[in-house]
Write a protein that binds this DNA or RNA. Structure first.
Lengths: 347, 347
DNA sequence: CCGACCCTTGGTAACGTTACCGAGCTTGCG
DNA sequence: CGCAAGCTCGGTAACGTTACCAAGGGTCGG
C-alpha cells in the first residue's frame, strides 16, 4: 500500500480510502491510485484490515460436518453458503469423520483463524472446550444433532415425529409386525428414531418384538444382512422401517434379491436419490437439509448481531413421500398385488 | 498476548515462543504462561502471525465449484480436504452456479483473504484476470474443465475416451442407430463428449444421423421430453447415450414410462446413485471425482513448493460399469429378452 | 475583506504477531 | 580466576491496514 501511495504520489490514507470505496477523494487522485494499483499488482489485504479493526467481523464462517461428501451434508453446506454469501461472508468447511479428536482439532483451527461463527454437526460427547471461544465472542450453532453439554442455538430434524409418521403409515396399511433397522445407538438421531418407532407402536397398541429390531447397523452391507435375517426369521415382519438412508438402500437390495420388494412394505428415514425410479418406489420420510442449513445460518447471523439472545432449539419438520413401497398392505401375498400409488411420482 | 505476558510476569516473546512450541523457554516459565493463557481465554491469532511472516503460507486454500450440493463436486471437495488437511491447511469453498461474474467475485474474495492456492472448476469464458494473482504468488489448479485463456495446472476426466468407450460398447452390442443427449454445447465437457460420440461412430463406419442427436439439454425434464421424442421418431434409435448424469436420469424415466427400458439400450456418462438397484441397472461411464480432487490438491501443493514448474494437464481415466441397460442387444424386441449381466452388481 | 466552515489530504499510532538483536546469566576450559 | 561460549529472556521494529487528528485550501456570508 505504501508502494502504491508512493507511485501515485499520494498518502497511504488516500489509497486506503480508494480501495474501500469511501468518498472524500478527488476523482483525479482516485484515478492515479487505481493506475498505480494495476501497475504494481496490488491486492487489498483483508486480513490485515481485520487485524486493525479488532472486533469487526472477519466475514468467515466455519462449518464442521461429519463428511462433506455425504449428500445431506453437502446440501446443508450449500444452503449455509447461500445465506452467508449475501453478507459477503465466506465459508470454510471441514469433515470430522465422526472422530471427536479431529472435530476438536478442526474447531480450534477455525477459531485460531478468527472465524465469526461456527455451524457444527457435532460428533464428540462433550463440547465444553468451546466455552472459551464463546466467551471470546465466537458464535456457535449446532445442526442435525444437539450438543448436550453446552447451551447454544440448535437446529434438528423432527426425528421422533418422522419415525412415528413412518411407522403409523405402515400400521394404517394393516401391518403389526414391523421390523426396525437402526444406526449405532450412541448416535443421537439413531436413538431418536428408535424412540419414535417405539412410540408409534405403543400408540397402536402393538407390543414391540425385540426379534424384529436390529440396532447398531452402520453400513449398507450390514443392513442387507440384517434384512435377510429378518425375512428368514420365524415370524417374519410384513413391513420394515429403516432409520437411515444407507440402511434403506441395503434393505431394499436385500428385499430385491429375495424377490420380496412387492410383498414386504418398506419405509426409510431420509430420502435417497432415484428412489422414485425403482419399482415400487421407496416410500421415505424426507428431511430438509436445505431448510436446516438455511435456518442454522440465519440463526448464526442473528446471534452475531445480537450475542445476548437466549439459545434456541428449532425443529425442522419432516414429510412422508409415498412412492409405493410403504403402501403395500399387510395380509396379501400375491406378487401381482401392485400398490395403488403411482410409481414414478414424485422423485 | 501482552496481557498474558503481563499476568505471567514474562515478556511477550516468551509467550510467543510458548504458544509456538519452540524451545529455549524454561519449564517453570512455560507453565506460568499456560496458566495465564487459560485464565485470560487467550487464543493465538494465526492471521496476525501470517501478517508478520509475510511470504509464509496462510494454510488456507480456496475451492471454487459450480455447486457444492452436486455429489460430484462434493466428493471432489472432500478429496481436496483430505489431502490438504495433512498439511494442516483449511479449505474455504464456494459455488459459482455457473455464473461468470459470481465466479470472479468469489475468486477475488479468496485472493483478498490471501489463500495460498486455488482449485477452480471454471465456468467463465476468460480467466485472465487471475494473472495478477499468479504474479502475486497465488497458485491455481483447474479441475474438471480447462481454462483456455490461462496457462495453469489442470485435471480433467477423459471425456472423449469415455464417450468413445460408451458408444463402442453399444456398437459391439449390435447397435447402429444410437441416439445422443448432451448438455449445453458451450460447456467444455458436453462438447468433448459429443466429440467422443462422433469419433466412435466414425470408427465403426456409422454415419451420424442428426435426427438422433439432441444437444443443449440442460435438465432432467428436457431429457425426458427429448427421449420421448427420439422414441417416437420415424427411424427410432435402438440405443441411447446420455452424456450427463441428470440427462441419464431423465432418459431412464422416459424409457421406463414408455415400457422400453428392456428394449432400448442405454449408457450414461457419469455414475448415478442407486443405478444398480434398477432393473435393468444403468450401464454408465463412471468418472472418478475422488481421484480428481486428490490429484488437483497434490498438484497445487507441489506447485506451492515449486512455483516455477511448467503447467501440466492430467487426464483422469473413466471406466465402464456394465449393469444391464448397456448390454441390451440390437435387433431383438421381446421384453423377456433379459440381459446376461447380473442386475445388482456393482452398485 | 475576514472569519467560520467544509472538503480533501496525510502523518502517526495501533491492531497481534514474530524476527532480530542485545543483555544477563551460567558453564567450562585454560 | 578470567574469558569465551552457550543458554534464557525481553525490547523494539515491522508486517498491511485503518482510526484519529491536524493541517491546508476553498467557499460563502456578513
Amino acid at each position: 500500500m505504501r508502494d502504491v501511495a508512493a507511485l501515485a504520489g499520494v498518502g497511504v490514507m488516500t489509497v486506503s480510502r480508494v480501495v474501500n470505496g469511501r468518498d472524500g477523494v478527488s476523482a483525479e487522485r482516485a484515478a492515479r491510485v487505481w493506475r498505480a494499483i494495476e501497475q504494481l499488482d496490488y491486492r487489498h489485504n483483508i486480513t490485515a484490515r481485520h487485524l486493525r479493526l479488532t472486533g469487526q467481523p472477519t466475514a468467515i464462517i466455519g462449518v464442521l460436518l461429519e463428511d462433506v461428501a455425504n449428500p445431506f451434508a453437502a446440501e446443508l453446506l450449500r444452503a449455509v453458503e447461500n445465506v452467508v454469501s449475501e453478507q459477503d461472508s465466506l465459508v470454510v468447511c471441514a469433515s470430522s469423520d465422526g472422530d471427536a479428536a479431529r472435530e476438536r482439532a478442526l474447531l480450534e483451527a477455525f477459531c485460531t483463524r478468527r472465524v465469526d461463527g461456527l455451524i457444527i454437526v457435532p460428533c464428540g460427547p462433550d463440547h465444553r472446550y468451546l466455552l472459551t471461544e464463546l466467551r471470546r465472542g465466537t458464535q456457535v450453532v449446532f445442526a442435525d444433532r444437539p450438543a448436550p453439554t453446552i447451551a447454544a442455538d440448535t437446529v434438528i430434524s423432527d426425528n421422533v415425529g418422522g419415525s412415528r409418521l413412518a411407522v403409523s403409515h405402515l400400521v394404517n396399511a394393516g401391518h403389526t409386525r414391523i421390523g426396525f433397522l437402526g444406526d449405532l445407538r450412541q448416535i443421537y438421531t439413531a436413538a431418536e428414531r428408535h424412540r419414535g418407532y417405539l412410540a408409534a407402536l405403543q400408540s397402536a397398541g402393538i407390543e414391540p418384538d425385540e426379534r424384529l429390531i436390529r440396532r447398531d447397523i452402520h453400513n449398507e452391507q450390514s443392513a442387507e444382512h440384517a434384512t435377510h435375517d429378518l425375512l428368514a426369521a420365524a415370524p417374519a415382519p410384513t413391513a420394515i422401517f429403516t432409520a437411515q438412508n444407507l440402511l434403506t438402500i441395503g434393505a431394499r437390495k436385500a428385499l430385491g434379491s429375495a424377490g420380496a420388494e412387492r410383498l414386504v412394505a418398506h419405509v426409510g428415514f431420509d430420502d435417497v436419490p432415484l428412489a422414485g425410479l425403482l419399482d415400487p418406489g421407496i416410500t421415505v420420510i424426507a428431511q430438509d437439509p436445505q431448510a436446516m442449513g438455511e435456518l442454522a445460518a440465519q440463526m448464526l447471523l442473528r446471534r452475531l448481531r445480537d450475542p445476548a439472545a437466549a439459545p434456541e432449539t428449532v425443529e425442522v419438520p419432516t414429510r412422508l413421500i409415498a412412492r409405493g413401497s410403504g403402501e403395500i398392505r399387510a395380509g396379501r401375498s400375491s406378487a401381482t398385488d401392485r400398490p395403488a400409488a403411482p410409481i414414478a411420482t414424485p422423485l
